[in-house]
């Protein structure tokens, strides 16, 4: 018998594919921002689905803060090569050469220069008029209020009080010169949806998401992995081997690991369903100040 109802995952998939195609049809120079994380991995797969059997008509862009886990960079290059993606990598050369990093400059300065400023410069350099991001509304309070097609003025800023009404699945894609739109196809997905979809679709993800023995140091209650020798020696000396995994991935000094035995997707989902801490607790940058994500978003951070 024919069945005419979609499961929640298939409904979310259909919505995301529609959003991605709409951008390709209406913008002249879109780009998909790729953070190499699990959400990005899902978004990239949805783009491949949207244009099958054709090639995705826009590139991927990774803003490299130069402090990502090494395994992320390996995964990025392998994935892009195997799946025929056109990959752009950009970074803030000036700040990098000046030696900016989280250990020496703190998370705020590092994030601003190596992520926010690097992103703004890259978008400007390539003249992108639309940029996809893998953000979800369930991640953080200010994201819960953001539109799927989120307008940015010529200064790339978000004005939460003056958002365009967004109704049905009819998206307003019109912009003026220098203005742009950030597009969030995963807006309505939750962390559980992401993991279930990864399992269902067998989407490859960075191995750091799976539990393994890793050398970590406890810094301010976060388990920080020793990924290279740029971590100060006095911290590295305190490293211990522990069985950990990551719920989110970013700059290694700013991303806390959790102790876990989950070395398969099934175990990860099982662990997540009984977990008592939200995923953002492992992101160090959120704790800088009250309303800090909203502040960063207003300044142009994704």
């Amino acid at each position: 018998m024919e069945n005419y109802s979609l499961s929640h995952l298939r409904a979310l998939e259909a919505e995301a594919i529609h959003i991605i195609r709409e951008v390709a049809a209406e913008f002249s120079n879109p780009v998909m921002l790729y953070s190499i994380g699990k959400d990005s991995s899902v978004m990239v797969r949805l783009a491949e689905k949207a244009f099958y059997p054709g090639k995705v008509p826009f590139p991927l862009m990774h803003i490299d803060s130069k402090w990502k886990f090494r395994e992320m960079i390996e995964f990025r290059d392998t994935y892009a090569r195997n799946h025929g993606w056109d990959l752009i990598v950009e970074y803030n050369r000036e700040a990098y050469e000046a030696g900016v990093g989280p250990f020496t400059h703190g998370s705020r300065v590092h994030t601003d220069l190596m992520k926010t400023q690097a992103l703004l410069a890259a978008l400007k350099k390539h003249g992108f008029d639309a940029a996809f991001g893998g953000a979800r509304r369930d991640e953080e309070k200010s994201r819960a209020k953001e539109r799927i097609f989120s307008f940015r003025n010529a200064f790339q800023q978000w004005d939460p009080k003056n958002q365009r009404p967004e109704l049905w699945d009819i998206y307003n894609t019109r912009i003026g010169a220098g203005e742009s739109i950030r597009v969030f196809p995963l807006s309505n997905w939750t962390e559980t949806d992401i993991w279930q979809y990864i399992r269902l679709e067998k989407i490859p993800i960075v191995p750091l998401y799976y539990a393994a023995e890793r050398a970590v140091v406890e810094i301010n209650g976060n388990l920080i992995m020793v990924d290279d020798e740029r971590m100060p020696l006095e911290l590295r000396n305190k490293a211990q081997l522990r069985r950990v995994r990551f719920r989110t991935l970013g700059c290694y000094p700013l991303t806390g690991a959790i102790e876990s035995d989950a070395d398969t997707i099934e175990k990860i989902v099982e662990e997540m369903m009984v977990t008592t801490r939200s995923e953002r607790t492992t992101r160090v940058i959120d704790f800088d100040q009250e309303g800090s994500m909203e502040q960063k978003k207003r300044e142009g951070y994704f």
């Binding site: 929640h8 209020k145 939460p160 009080k161 958002q163 807006s187 309505n188 559980t192």
Partner: peptide
């Protein structure tokens, strides 16, 4: 001020 979206799930929906 504006529309905010919230998500939750039960075993059925």
């Amino acid at each position: 001020i504006d529309v905010a979206y919230r998500y939750f799930a039960t075993s059925r929906r």
